[in-house]
Design a protein around this nucleic acid. Structure first.
Length: 570
RNA sequence: GCGCCAGUAGCUCAGCUGGAUAGAGCAGUAGCCUUCUAAGCUAUUGGUCGGGGGUUCGAAUCCUCCCUGGCGCGCCA
């Protein structure tokens, strides 16, 4: 158990006993109020609690008096002193020997420092799930990077995480993609508005021709509608009826090709999904054993559906949605919504405790209806959660680069990666709170100086490594305790890491870890300047080597969670 | 019109389940290289926390109204 958790346990005991002494009743509601926090400045000790202020009303006593009572009873061997300041804050100071021992422990644990024990919680994390109709763009990249870091954070706190990509390999968009490929292959000059465009379509069409020399298609596309959308559907229909073989071949070929492109891109970011779940595997709604029909009948049996206009609706307005939603269309075909409901039925059956969906913020309207379906279908203890990420604006030389999937001038993730490398992109994406539009400064990402937080943090790790190649920490030798006292800032950051990283996981906030890394790096750079590690005084040297070693470990562990490779040389 | 997210220093952002004097970085200003990488450090300027009300010992944080920006409101996917 880490120090602050131990301390909190003790505090809770003490507070309960104070309640008893005063003849007041302690209810479990008070539990969350009773805890220590990491002090913001040295003057407030190592840990501080404001619980006396919070309980003041309950106990009908002045905060400072309560703090006094708590302080008198609080007996933790490794607390050197405690003091009451301000309106009733109780601040405690750890003794130096304990800190030194904790630092040694940290070094012993190495890569495992900050990791929690397994907790048997099974989590399904769905992220990216971009339609296989084109390469990933920068926005998808943010979701991908975020999902991976979140997964690492959750695994670090002992959860078992399955990373899944939902492949929309059925439906209209895929039909349009297939038509686009076939037209590009067999009717070079036939341009239709709304078809997929771009170099990748051309490439896939060429490869398709090469791989399918036997297939021959001669087109006679006449009498097409003037309506743009109708026209697209007519073309798909035409191929499916008149060139069935070519259609089926092109359909699976293009999905496969594009998925490979997506997979490769994710791999170059070291983002690896455990499962690729295909929409087509959900089956047909006519088949009673399919996930689609199973989920439909559960919702029907639960009495949440009604018929209107020939369609079957889910009364999601009973679940805080702003409109009711169609599950089964008038023509008997499932809506996209129903397929997603079926997919979640599948997740539920795989018995995950928690399903997390990482969504682009433009899908936020989808949350109430999906939650509604999930809540109707789930087993008792299952939960669903959403994590949203907002747009990325690329900035260069003070102006904005344009990105839009629809216009074909989209800025692909690959282009950005080729320009900057994957790790700096990950670091920048993770630095900002996910549910916040972010400005990505390309010039800054390229900068190799302290102005670039990625560079700055890596440089701290490099400096640690550089020193440690010259000399290494010897745990059997004595360390100068004054050094630990002097470097309060860095020591406290190191020792509170396990507690902090755990809370970042609970709060689903990888960005906090990035800020932690920046802060720790800054503390180390300052230490590096004022405290030459290689030193004539062996006790001082060993203490500084210990701090260097511990910093290196914690930085490396943090980088690992962020899915960024720590550099040893620059 | 309804819903979601946001508005904090000149810029980019933390802090938001109420707590101590609102924090970083950049930019600005003034310093520091015969010493483990100056790819760095130190000091310092700069804030009516979008605005008005309210809740209380205490509000950037909670409630309410308003203003501004982004996104979303299909028997599309």
């Amino acid at each position: 158990m880490n120090l602050i958790d131990q301390l909190n346990e003790e505090l809770l005991k003490v507070v309960k006993s104070v309640f008893k002494d005063l003849g007041a009743e302690f209810s479990d509601q008070h539990n969350t109020l009773v805890c220590f926090e990491i002090s913001d400045t040295h003057e407030h000790g190592d840990f501080s609690t404001s619980c006396a202020l919070k309980l003041s009303k309950k106990l009908n006593k002045k905060p400072a008096e309560i703090a006094e009572l708590i302080s008198a009873k609080l007996s933790v061997p490794w607390i050197e002193k405690s003091e009451i300041l301000g309106p009733g804050f109780l601040n405690v100071y750890l003794d130096i020997e304990t800190k030194a021992n904790k630092l040694k422990e940290l070094i012993e644990r190495g890569p495992n420092y900050g990791k929690n024990k397994k907790n048997n919680k099974k989590i399904l994390l769905e992220f990216v799930s971009s339609n296989p109709t084109g390469p990933l763009h920068v926005g998808h990249g943010r979701g991908a990077v975020l999902g991976m870091a979140l997964s690492n954070l959750l695994e670090n706190s002992g959860c078992e995480v399955t990373k899944e990509y939902y492949v929309n390999d059925a439906g209209r968009q895929i039909s349009i993609l297939t038509s686009s490929i076939l037209l590009k292959a067999y009717a070079t000059n036939f341009n239709v508005e709304g078809m997929y465009e771009g170099a990748y379509i051309h490439e896939i069409a060429q490869e398709f021709l090469k791989d399918h020399e036997k297939i021959n298609v001669s087109l006679s596309l006449e009498g097409l509608s003037d309506d743009k959308e109708k026209k697209l559907d007519q073309i798909s229909e035409y191929f499916q009826i008149n060139h069935k073989e070519a259609w089926e071949a092109a359909n699976s070929f293009s999905i496969m090709r594009i998925l490979n492109v997506i997979k490769e891109e994710l791999h170059s970011f070291n983002i690896i999904h455990d499962n690729w779940f295909h929409e087509s595997s959900l089956g047909f709604v006519q088949d009673p054993s399919s996930d689609l029909s199973k989920s439909l009948s559960i919702i029907e049996k639960a009495g949440h559906t009604f018929s209107e206009g020939g369609a079957i609706w889910f009364r999601t307005t009973d679940f805080k949605d702003d409109k009711d939603r169609v599950l089964l269309r008038e023509n008997g075909a499932p809506t996209y919504y129903l397929t997603d409901v079926g997919y979640h039925k599948n997740k539920i059956d795989r018995e995950y405790d928690l399903c997390i969906n990482v969504f682009g913020a433009d899908h936020h309207g989808y949350i109430p209806r999906l939650t509604a379906a999930f809540d109707v279908m789930k087993n008792k203890k299952q939960a669903i959660e959403f994590m949203l990420y907002q747009l990325v604006n690329l900035h260069e030389d003070g102006s904005k680069r344009i990105m839009s999937t629809r216009k074909g001038e989209f800025y692909s993730l690959k282009e950005l990666r080729n320009e900057l490398g994957p790790d700096v992109i990950k670091f920048f994406f993770l630095e900002k709170k996910s549910d916040h539009t972010m400005d990505f400064d390309i010039n800054l990402a390229k900068d190799e100086s302290k102005n670039n937080p990625y560079f700055y943090s890596q440089y701290a790790h490099v400096r640690c490594c550089s020193i440690l190649t010259k000399k290494s920490f010897d745990p059997s030798e004595a360390v100068e305790e004054k050094e630990i006292m002097k470097n309060f800032d860095i020591v406290n950051r190191l020792l509170t890491f396990p507690h902090l990283v755990e809370s970042y996981a609970e709060e689903r906030s990888p960005h906090s870890l990035v800020h932690y890394v920046k802060d720790l790096s800054a503390a180390f750079h300052a230490f590096y300047e004022q405290s030459p590690v290689i030193n004539e005084d062996k006790k001082i040297e060993n203490a500084r080597l210990m701090l260097t070693m511990a910093t290196k470990i914690v930085l490396a562990n943090s980088f690992r969670i962020l899915n960024v490779q720590p550099l040893e040389k620059m």
